[in-house]
């Protein structure tokens, strides 16, 4: 029971991070290997505001999100727009995007090392015990989970019902046809990329309340988010949430039963199973 609830709480935060990546990969079609660095940057911001000014991470989020939005929009415009323009095919864009964001991720790690050093950082925010169904949990995990649920829910509603959300889903499904019905694909792709970055940075700020981060942990989160997105199906919100909860559960199980150092191994296990059994994702339909 303890494992299930802790796992679900962790999975909720993962869902938020993976949603960010899904917006970038599924909607804007940019395979962003620098996603984890954005997450760590969000975590750093929360850490810095909390230790320097005692600002609650839940409030920092309102600053982190717009800043990350602007930063990611700029990244898209400066680095990725030229690639989208010169790419002749989807495959070529993928290769170029992978190389570029791979380089960007090292730049990100380097910048954070320069500003914050290589130490682990953590702070204790709301680490008071909360009793739930006979066990105790950290209040920070509950708060992070609650925030993740609210943000994921809002995103889902926005994507499902707003005009802009529908347009974004349209460019994910059929970028060529979307242009025919008067959707500005380029502007919307930039928007989806920026929004994805903002969501990921928010997730980072929330996750830093209960996990210890350091400048070079970004790649692990990138990987977990990628596994979740692939498992849930690219561009599929519902699948992402389910996959994130599954990963959270499995990871917590592995960490508490076998060894806490094996969390990435858990993600790999899921990844291999998915690749072998359902490469199209949990709810995906087989394509020809």
């Amino acid at each position: 029971m303890d494992i299930i609830i802790t796992g679900l709480l962790l999975g909720g935060t993962y869902a938020l991070i993976a949603m960010g990546l899904n917006l970038q990969y599924g909607m804007a079609r940019i395979m962003n290997l620098a996603n984890g660095e954005m997450l760590v940057a969000g975590g750093f911001a929360a850490f810095w505001f909390y230790t320097a000014g005692a600002v609650s991470p839940v409030l920092t989020v309102f600053l982190v999100a717009p800043v990350a939005f602007a930063a990611n929009w700029l990244i898209y415009m400066i680095f990725l727009r030229p690639l989208v323009k010169r790419a002749k095919s989807r495959g070529q864009l993928e290769v170029d995007a992978i190389l570029t964001t791979f380089g960007l991720s090292f730049v990100g790690v380097g910048l954070m090392l320069a500003f914050f050093g290589g130490d682990y950082f953590s702070y204790s925010y709301l680490s008071v015990p909360v009793h739930l169904l006979g066990d105790t949990y950290g209040a920070n995990r509950l708060v992070a989970f609650g925030a993740a649920v609210v943000i994921c829910g809002a995103l889902w509603l926005w994507l499902a019902y707003s005009r802009m959300g529908v347009s974004i889903r349209a460019i994910a499904v059929a970028p060529d046809s979307a242009r025919l019905v008067g959707i500005d694909v380029r502007a919307l792709a930039a928007l989806a990329f920026a929004l994805g970055g903002a969501v990921t940075a928010t997730g980072g700020a929330l996750i830093s309340t209960f996990l210890t981060l350091d400048a070079s942990t970004g790649v692990i989160f990138t990987l977990k988010a990628l596994v979740i997105v692939i498992m849930g199906g690219v561009g599929d919100v519902r699948g992402t949430v389910v996959a994130a909860l599954l990963l959270g559960l499995l990871e917590t199980f592995v960490a508490s039963v076998i060894d806490p150092g094996l969390t990435l191994a858990a993600a790999y296990l899921l990844f291999v199973i998915i690749l072998l059994v359902r490469p199209q994702g949990l709810f995906g339909r087989k394509t020809t």
Partner: peptide, 24 residues
């Protein structure tokens, strides 16, 4: 056997994964 993205992602974390397993 699948598209190239899966390969990239898998290889991205392979070193880290092996490191965790050996540390364990």
């Amino acid at each position: 056997r699948l598209s190239g993205v899966y390969f990239v992602i898998f290889t991205l974390g392979l070193a880290e994964f092996l490191r965790q397993v050996i540390t364990w």
